[in-house]
Design a protein around this nucleic acid. Sequence first.
DNA 1: CACAATTCAATTGCGCACAACTAAATGGCG
DNA 2: CGCCATTTAGTTGTGCGCAATTGAATTGTG
Lengths: 166, 166
Amino acid sequence: MAGKSYPGTMTTTPTADWLRLDQQICFSLNAASRAFGGVYRVILKDLGLTYPQYLVMLVLWEHGDLPVKKLGEHLRLDSGTLSPLLKRLEGAGLVRRERSTHDERSVEVHLTEDGAALRERALQVPRRIAAATGFDIDEIHELRTRLDQLTTALDAAARAEASGAS
Amino acid sequence: MAGKSYPGTMTTTPTADWLRLDQQICFSLNAASRAFGGVYRVILKDLGLTYPQYLVMLVLWEHGDLPVKKLGEHLRLDSGTLSPLLKRLEGAGLVRRERSTHDERSVEVHLTEDGAALRERALQVPRRIAAATGFDIDEIHELRTRLDQLTTALDAAARAEASGAS
DNA sequence: CACAATTCAATTGCGCACAACTAAATGGCG
DNA sequence: CGCCATTTAGTTGTGCGCAATTGAATTGTG
């Protein structure tokens, strides 16, 4: 995208160059993430879902009814994000929320009939998304592996930074 | 991360499997993006910046004073996002906003002395981020290339979808 | 010059992400 | 049993991202 080339053997990049925007992987990642959001917004409009709502539905379709806590573990989201989101899904008639009888602290999220039925219409989504990327299945899989590796490293680093590194 | 393997030659993945969360590259991308956010949050706290504010400062440090429009082009952000963000940066004394004398529609964003000085302290940030990823410079560069490729494809697809494809 | 179309920033409204806090229920320990 | 730490959702507040709208300035056209 920029005119410069960065030969693989360059290890002496000046400090100031690190600040160059086009060197910032985070920027690329952020841009890609938002570009994905744009494609999803268009494709999911039919289903009446936002992208985070779609992710919640994916988890429910795959794992069945779950308490909010488990849902959050699958998605790396806390109740601060999930509570209002689930209320909106409930308002749309896709899920019900019921306090567990065994443990009244816990709230079970159940798919309604409409919520379960929506899965059929959602089946086409991933293929359209995959097509939009222009990547084949191997490339997707390889990129995914890389990103998961990155996430693991970053989470570990965040914990290390938080507990008092330089 | 899951127990299944996806050999490269498999082109007959059942439709339902596409819905599997761990197949969703978007989820990995989103997770990585948020994991980055977590690391940046910690590292940028010293500088008193959020991550998007840091990106704005990066652009200003690299390109000098710019109108809001140009800033938005560099960052793929519109005035709806930038206007309040720039007000906060102005409140923090890092930038000034002044209507252009040539074109009164335009607002020029200028670095203040404090804003320019902050660059020195920011120089350490990218190295710490790079270290947190656990990737070497070649891996970072390769991933970046991939992601930019992805973003380009997705933007094109979003435009195509928006103008009436299936 | 007058008027319509365009450009640019700001605002409004909605939803998500996350930190900090609250409140209720549970479980453990003396 | 009585008390306290923990677990779990929910709420509040801040900031970002984006669509839609507004309003002012500019440009193009007759």
